[in-house]
């Protein structure tokens, strides 16, 4: 693996035990410059991991905890009222504009508890995430990491609607080590905290500048995707549509996500594995794309489907 990513992975491992899949997904998101959505119950290290990824690099970083009264301007920067006297001195123009800050100036941003944001902020926010431009200028934004609690009565949140969720190419459900029965990892966490040597507040060491990440992205774009892989991807989609009945009403199999971004994720997976070309192993990333995009019963079939396609299309 690339040294930059190794360092980032080390930082993640230093602070958070277990959650290998989430860590891998976070690294993939950073490499691919795609947004990632982590949904899980409180206290499962979602925010912690997101923060380590953001702070573990020398990148401009914006963290925002969304809440019910979040105003759009808190996310975008400062609102400025500008009065300018006209050249002839006989009038003035009054403009309101935004002094760019927040998400408009960051390389990586963490949007904590995204489903709590009111529609006002969320609509514009998601649009910015999608277009990566605001007021006709492009943003430096690489990756947005959003976290949310599952939509349950007790959390008083509204579910994100599927179209909003589609902005997050990678989607994961995070579950706690204890609740998911990962006793070994849970034990390691308990031991660590019981020993009293861990500084909870310690900040991760920052590695890698924007230029390093830009170089990595160049590498990603040069990664080869063979015809066989493309056919495997199409077969995956064909099975979802034709055998599992995924359609516009029950699923979100958008062309943008599955014909453009899926390829990017496959490349990212190859870059993470230190390969110059995509192989069938990389198809495993597709499971992160289907988390909230297909009905639950279909989702359960995805790992088996990916395994079958990997066998059929393997060299």
């Amino acid at each position: 693996m690339n040294a930059l990513l190794q360092n980032l992975r080390r930082e993640l491992d230093r602070f958070v035990i277990g959650h290998d899949e989430v860590k891998e997904a976070l690294l993939t998101a950073v490499v691919c410059r795609e947004h990632i959505y982590l949904e899980g119950p409180p206290g499962t290290a979602k925010t912690r991991m997101a923060e380590i990824v953001a702070r573990g690099s020398k990148l401009k970083f914006f963290f925002y905890q969304l809440h019910r009264d979040t105003r759009l301007t808190e996310l975008l920067g400062d609102v400025v009222l500008e009065r300018r006297i006209l050249e002839d001195g006989q009038g003035e123009t009054i403009h309101q504009r935004i002094e760019k800050g927040g998400i408009l100036a960051a390389d990586v941003c963490v949007l904590d508890d995204i489903s709590r944001a009111p529609g006002e902020a969320l609509n514009v926010l998601l649009r910015i995430l999608n277009e990566r431009s605001y007021a006709e200028s492009n943003l430096p934004l690489m990756t947005a990491i959003a976290t949310s609690n599952p939509h349950l009565d007790e959390y008083y949140n509204e579910p994100l609607d599927p179209a909003c969720l589609d902005r997050f190419t990678i989607q994961l459900q995070v579950s706690g080590l204890i609740q998911s029965g990962d006793q070994e990892a849970a034990r390691a966490v308990i031991e660590r905290f019981a020993s009293g040597t861990i500084e909870e507040v310690a900040a991760p060491t920052a590695h890698g500048t924007r230029a390093d990440y830009d170089a990595l992205y160049d590498e990603l774009q040069k990664t080869q995707v063979g015809d066989r892989i493309k056919r495997a991807l199409l077969e995956f989609l064909r099975v979802l549509v034709e055998h599992h009945g995924c359609d516009e009403t029950n699923s979100l199999l958008t062309d943008r996500s599955f014909l453009v971004k899926a390829i990017k994720l496959l490349r990212g997976s190859a870059v993470l594995a230190g390969r110059g070309r995509v192989t069938v192993e990389d198809l495993a990333v597709l499971r992160w794309m289907t988390t909230f995009r297909v009905p639950a019963d279909v989702r359960a079939e995805i790992p088996a489907l990916i395994a079958r396609i990997q066998r059929e299309y393997g060299d």
Binding site: L237, V241, E248, T254
Partner: peptide, 10 residues
């Protein structure tokens, strides 16, 4: 327009 994937236009 319909999506190519969902409409099965392989």
């Amino acid at each position: 327009l319909r999506g190519r994937v969902v409409s099965g236009d392989w």
